[in-house]
Design a protein around this nucleic acid. Structure first.
Lengths: 122, 122
DNA sequence: ATATGTGCAAACTCTTTGCATGGAG
DNA sequence: CTCCATGCAAAGAGTTTGCACATAT
């Protein structure tokens, strides 16, 4: 069974504090503010475990590898800032997206990514 | 000025023959069928140059790094097969996508990705 | 003739894994 | 007291770069 370690609590706290998808590197940086000895391999192992448990979900955005976010959120999409490379949530979703696929293709999910500059980088 | 080398002709030919976005590795594999001595570094250098010239455009899809496709194509989106990891074109686009961004964010582009199984992998 | 392009190998970045030690239960 | 988890360092995958040689112009 899963043990409740200090580093795992720190990692969970990071996601609860930040309301947006994070890369492993971003989790490390924020986690180390609470626990400087936190290691990168531990972050990678834990986000994978937390995603496996269903507590986090994987967000596949271009650039800089897989990101993770709290799984509880309802269906939504993402905005990726070209300046600071941060990802943000976009709550609305266009309708009937599945119907756009070519004939004979089976769609089981979709991702809409908006690119641009976030409010802080304009 | 750009020189017209054999490897550059091969790389252009690959994109003209295949009507979908390709990773550097996919370009290498197909290019080597025409020219076995073609090297991976040459592919990386050339897709970057061709994209800089506007002959290719970059396609940022999750998983497996940047892909490239012929730039001449009109606005469209992509389907990514979860089985063979190939990307395909999707011609239609939902309307008013830009309006979905949060207040204060400036949108300069977007990408819609459908996930599933392609016709060959069903 | 000249300078850009190529191939190879080394360097880099991001992620994963092996192993000895640490700590939760 | 047991094992699972951690930190470190090494190993992998994908991409970029330095250098000597090849070749388009």
């Amino acid at each position: 069974m899963q043990r409740d370690t200090r580093q795992r609590r720190v990692i969970r706290r990071v996601f609860m504090n930040v309301g947006r998808p994070l890369t492993a590197g971003e989790v490390l940086e924020r986690g180390q503010r609470m626990m400087p000895s936190l290691g990168l391999a531990t972050v990678y192992r834990n986000v994978k475990i937390l995603a496996g448990e269903g507590w986090l979900s994987e967000v596949e955005l271009p650039g800089g590898g897989l990101r993770y976010e709290l799984a509880e959120r309802p269906h939504h999409h993402h905005f990726l800032c070209r300046v600071c490379d941060s990802a943000f949530d976009v709550d609305r979703c266009p309708d009937k997206v599945e119907e756009l696929a070519p004939e004979g293709f089976e769609v089981d999910g979709h991702e809409l990514i908006l690119f641009g500059r976030c409010a802080a980088c304009r």
